[in-house]
Amino acid sequence: MSTLRLRIELNKGRIGMPLHKLAQVCQETTRFLDMLCEDIGLSAPKSGWLAEEFENASVDFDVRHPDIISEQLAALGRRALRMVLSDDYDDPALGFAIRIETRRQYKRIGGALDPDEVARFGIYKNGEQSPEQWFELHRTEVIDTASGLIDRNAYGEIQGTVNAFFKEHSPPYLRVRELATGVLVNCYFRPEMYQTAVELLEDRDAVVFVEGWIKEDAATGHTREIRVQDFRPAPEFDPNLYRRMLGALPDYTGASSSEDFVRSWRDDG
């Protein structure tokens, strides 16, 4: 069994810290830790996170989840903390589980800091007396992230219609209005994909599929940029082909009728 804890170091090299500033940092940190716990399937502590092991001079203390948890879950928590604190989401599965709101909440911790201040966070290994790795958060990071895009290092796809074509930009890109959200997405493509991009403009109302590595808006979580790996027009819906496919697998539902089969999957029998 194990615990999940980290070290927080504020106002390094100075004496103390204004109480209102300390309160804001602690409040935002607590909210971040609770959200991260939810992302990895660990219950947030009902009685709150424990602050302990205080030191004099700068404000140094440990923050610990009060529950004893499995080593596997604690290791997952440390990996998740390391991802967010380093802003390096090299594990796509875990990176996808960590919500955009959780990442933004971590950046909000720095909102109480002065421009020349740094907050340091240290991650402990199980049973160690001092953190194995330290991470720094600057106020400038908060400002930059709040107004910019977040790279999730995730591969995805959108469907939409072409809004504009910027052929003289380097790299060139299409601006596509996503059908699901109405958001305009900049789709940057390699020069050798130019002719394929031009062919997408032949039908002004055509729906296109765009897939590649995505970046999201820091405020909304919507896709705003794609580094395109492939794009193609959506196939036209053929009602005659659709009708011909009906009943093509007559034994798919076994002895059940189609209605009973669907009802069983919906569990509304």
Rank of each mutant, 00 (worst) to 15 (best):
R31Y: 02
W213E: 13
S2Q: 05
G41D: 11
R7D: 13
R224V: 13
Y106T: 02
Y194A: 05
D230T: 08
K46T: 10
N126S: 09
L10D: 15
E53C: 01
A112S: 12
I15K: 10
Y89N: 10
S86N: 08
K46D: 09
R139W: 03
A218H: 09
R104A: 05
A51K: 12
M17K: 14
R79T: 05
K107D: 01
E216I: 11
V262R: 04
L81W: 13
F166H: 08
L241E: 08
L184K: 08
H138R: 15
I98M: 06
Q24T: 11
G48C: 03
L33T: 06
T145N: 06
F261V: 05
S170T: 11
T223H: 08
F166W: 03
G247H: 12
R232H: 10
E141S: 14
A218G: 14
S264T: 06
A218D: 04
G41Y: 13
Y188P: 09
R5K: 15
P92G: 01
R175C: 05
R190Y: 06
R103H: 09
G77Y: 01
E55W: 00
M17G: 12
W213F: 14
A23H: 03
Q72P: 07
T29E: 11
D88A: 14
P171A: 02
Y155L: 09
E211G: 07
R139D: 00
Y106F: 15
H65M: 15
P172Q: 02
S258L: 05
V207Q: 12
E225V: 15
I226K: 13
D144K: 08
A164M: 00
R82G: 10
R64E: 14
P66S: 07
G110K: 09
D144L: 10
I143S: 01
T29I: 00
P171I: 03
E136C: 06
L22P: 07
G254L: 05
R78F: 01
L22V: 08
E199V: 03
R244G: 02
D267V: 00
A51M: 11
S47H: 08
S147E: 03
A57V: 05
Y252I: 06
D87K: 11
D203A: 07
R266H: 04
V183W: 06
P115W: 01
I15S: 12
N240C: 00
P92F: 08
R190H: 13
H138D: 06
G41W: 08
Q229Y: 04
F121Q: 05
L200Q: 06
